[in-house]
């Protein structure tokens, strides 16, 4: 974490119907979004398939993945924009200063 970056925590949810290769491509799509904004992935943790607390797009489950990223704060908006454009990402959350 250099002077002009902060550590962010990114959690995104991928659709449950994605299988091996599709799922991997979806992950790579998110990683490319981060990499395109000069983000550095510090930590990665897959929560696996989880049941959603409420249905999203008629889907009751999702693949949860958490990343810790060193990112320039000015790039966060662009990361969010690209994640919004993504077809696969059902939900995401970027917060600052991850605790754990």
């Amino acid at each position: 974490m250099s002077a002009d970056t902060r550590t962010y925590e990114l959690v995104y949810v991928l659709p449950p119907e994605l299988r091996d290769l599709e799922l991997e491509n979806a992950h790579q799509e998110v990683l490319q979004v981060v990499d395109r904004n000069d983000g550095k992935i510090v930590f990665e943790n897959s929560w696996g398939m989880r049941k959603l607390a409420y249905p999203i797009d008629k889907k009751t489950e999702g693949h949860y993945t958490m990343l810790h990223i060193d990112l320039d704060p000015s790039k966060v908006a662009d990361v969010e924009r690209l994640l919004n454009l993504s077809e696969n990402v059902m939900r995401y959350l970027i917060i600052r200063d991850p605790v754990a």
Binding site: R50, L52, A53, Y54, I56, G62, R91, L93
Partner: peptide, 17 residues
């Protein structure tokens, strides 16, 4: 509210929804 956004917690119970 963050957990609700990620569908980790419900906004409203399922039997009402």
């Amino acid at each position: 509210k963050q957990a609700r956004h990620l569908a980790l917690l419900p906004y409203t119970p399922s039997h009402i929804r």
